[in-house]
């Protein structure tokens, strides 16, 4: 089983992203579970959501404490919260940031680091800082745990019609514009 933790702020679509990823995983014949961690819900407040992925039924009904990877939707959270808490060996981190982050700056467990300036793309596409599908595109590129095609198909079948087109652009831009570096191979070529 792979476990993923999303960090975002209320209104950025972390819960929607976790559900979309779950749809895409099931669409590919896997089992997926998406779990929102509800706290005191306020727009802009930090929140978490989780996804579990397996090729067999997932019976655990717990939150994720030791993720195989993290996806951070909001650039300001990286400095403000211990987003890397509990991250496992051979882990991955998909970060929304315009800064250049070196592998030395993040925990040793993280082997794959993907960064994307999702705020810029989101302002281009949505004229609002909604970064969820951009980060999912980056996640697909960096981990290959799900395909861009599945994500796109599930956006078409699950999102309200009026936001489908823009999200298809957003997920593709996240997929193509992400920078991926790895401790194993210094710089991975983007497809």
């Amino acid at each position: 089983m792979k476990q993923i933790r999303f960090h975002g702020r209320g209104g950025q679509g972390a819960v929607m992203a976790s559900e979309l990823l779950c749809h895409a995983l099931v669409h590919e014949g896997n089992y997926g579970q998406s779990i929102p961690a509800y706290g005191f819900e306020r727009r802009g407040a930090p929140l978490e959501a989780f996804v579990k992925l397996d090729d067999k039924p997932i019976r655990e009904r717990t939150q994720v404490y030791e993720p195989d990877g993290i996806i951070v939707l909001d650039s300001s959270l990286i400095a403000q919260l211990p987003v890397f808490n509990g991250i496992q060996k051979d882990g991955f981190a998909i970060l929304n940031t315009r800064k250049t982050i070196a592998l030395d700056d993040i925990p040793q467990e993280v082997v794959t680091l993907a960064t994307v300036d999702a705020n810029r793309i989101a302002l281009d596409v949505f004229h609002a800082p909604i970064t969820n599908t951009i980060l999912l595109g980056a996640f697909a590129q960096a981990t290959k745990l799900v395909s861009l095609q599945s994500l796109s198909e599930c956006i078409e079948s699950n999102f309200p019609r009026k936001i489908v087109e823009k999200n298809l652009v957003a997920v593709a831009r996240g997929y193509h514009e992400v920078q991926v570096i790895s401790r194993n191979t210094p710089l991975r070529k983007v497809d």
Binding site: E19, Q33, P36
Partner: peptide
């Protein structure tokens, strides 16, 4: 069914 643990958890 358990609120949130099932009501807001999505699965196959």
């Amino acid at each position: 069914y358990d609120g949130f643990s099932l009501s807001h958890m999505a699965e196959r």
